[in-house]
């Protein structure tokens, strides 16, 4: 009797098949052109042009070349050959430190302020226009202003992370706080719970899932933005790595960096996914 595959097995198989198809298309697309070397070309000229046989660094890599690069970079992720040449692990760590710095600052501002405007209709109405105007601004648009006023590239990139992580957390916190069930607030009022205790024991747990969703969105945006910010002004980090390899027109290394950005982004997102599950509750 034929064994039926479970849903998980089916999807895994499909994923692997898709990966195989992508690799195949990639391989076919990057097959080297047959090099026609004309007989009358000066051999020295041909040598100076790279011999006409080797593919140059900027051509699109084959899956094999890509695999080799991934292996090389990942097998030595923490080397340090000076300020402009560090291993991928160190670069990612630099980016993560910046992201965490900006993110935590944003959380420190957004959550208390979100509590305030979620609790008070007056504050909400007063601050809402500012939030609405500031929210859609691309965080990178702040970069020149930040550089001009803060006068420090490192602090400016942290500021850019701060400003982009702020809004989703602020809005979600306000939303979460405003939507706490009235019954619970009424119960706490009946029991004459003091305001601080009410905030920490009633409102915070009730709003936590919404707040965490906001944090998850913020972290996603922060990770997107840090890459661009580091490409602009960075002296380290994964964005700087992309720029540095682009400067060498090395697509293999740029692709590798893109892959790493994806993997780290996924890891960050899943951390918040797990945290979100822990604070979730059934009504």
């Amino acid at each position: 009797m034929k064994k039926r595959l479970s849903l998980g097995q089916k999807s895994t198989l499909l994923s692997l098949a898709l990966f195989g198809v992508i690799l195949l298309i990639w391989q076919l697309a990057t097959l080297p052109d047959a090099q026609v070397v004309a007989a009358d070309v000066d051999p020295e000229y041909a040598a100076l042009m790279g011999g006409g046989t080797t593919t140059t660094a900027s051509s699109f890599p084959t899956p094999a070349a890509m695999g080799q690069t991934v292996w090389e970079k990942l097998s030595d992720p923490f080397y340090d050959n000076g300020p402009n040449d560090k291993g991928i692990g160190i670069q990612i760590a630099h980016s993560l430190v910046r992201v965490l710095g900006g993110f935590l600052l944003a959380a420190a501002v957004a959550i208390p302020v979100g509590f305030l405007i979620g609790n008070s209709r007056v504050f909400y109405a007063a601050l809402n226009p500012y939030v609405q105007v500031l929210k859609p601004i691309s965080p990178l648009a702040w970069m020149p202003l930040a550089l001009y006023t803060i006068k420090d590239a490192e602090a400016s990139s942290i500021f850019v992370i701060f400003i982009c992580s702020l809004w989703p957390m602020l809005i979600n916190t306000a939303l979460g706080v405003a939507n706490v069930r009235r019954d619970w607030l009424d119960v706490s009022r009946t029991l004459e719970v003091n305001p601080l205790r009410k905030a920490f024991r009633v409102i915070l747990p009730a709003a936590a899932p919404t707040i965490l969703t906001g944090m998850r969105i913020s972290m996603g945006i922060a990770w997107l933005v840090i890459v661009a910010a580091e490409m602009l002004v960075g002296s380290s980090g994964i964005g700087y790595f992309v720029w540095n390899e682009w400067n060498n027109l090395s697509l293999t290394n740029v692709l590798f960096a893109i892959l790493m950005i994806g993997v780290v982004g996924m890891a960050l997102d899943s951390i918040f996914g797990v945290l979100g599950k822990r604070v979730a509750y059934q009504e």
């Binding site: 140059t56 660094a57 050959n81 000076g82 300020p83 402009n84 040449d85 540095n244 390899e245 400067n247 060498n248």
Partner: peptide, 8 residues
């Protein structure tokens, strides 16, 4: 080297 020009 990669630390400086990073060019062939």
């Amino acid at each position: 080297p990669a630390n400086y020009l990073n060019q062939p």
